[in-house]
Amino acid sequence: MRRFLKLAGIALVFVVSAPPQAWGHPHHVSVGMADWIEETQSIEMALNVSVIDLEEVLSKRQKRALELDGKSKEIEKVLQKYFLSCFRIERADKVAIVPKWIGYEIEDDAAWIYLEIPFGRPSMKGCKIYHGVLIQEFEEQVNLLHVKRGKQRKTLKFRKRDPWQKLPAWH
């Protein structure tokens, strides 16, 4: 019981009111493509996230109505801060890797977020990734990441109860 309450206190960042209903309008799934690039030894990542969900969460954080217009530099800063806080990448040698923000754009009601993860190693073997986009805010949030290296493919699934996943040990 003590541990429970203590963690509750530590982790409090903001209070979100009830998320919108999923019935008839179920978003809460983000899908990303993560391509391993041999030349740069990095992953190039494109994430597709619901604009409605993102606007709701960021508006609550910013305490003002936020519209992702795909243009404003100020909004990009907010997004950048949020998305960089949502990812943690750990190499096999326990070195933490910080993703690089490339940018974002809006297409219909999806936001595309572009990040680059430089590994500085010839393989992802033993690397772990934490993909926490919207998983604290929405109970049912699922983040899918399609990882690709050459012809090899694997889908990683991140949820609130298992936000850390191992990257495939491909060569």
Binding site: L7, A8, A11, L12, V13, S17, Q136, K160, R161, P163
Partner: peptide, 16 residues
């Protein structure tokens, strides 16, 4: 319902 993730547990969740 399965347990939430206690690494990051929000007041809102506790409230619900």
């Amino acid at each position: 319902r399965v347990a939430p993730n206690f690494d990051q547990f929000y007041y809102k969740q506790l409230g619900e």
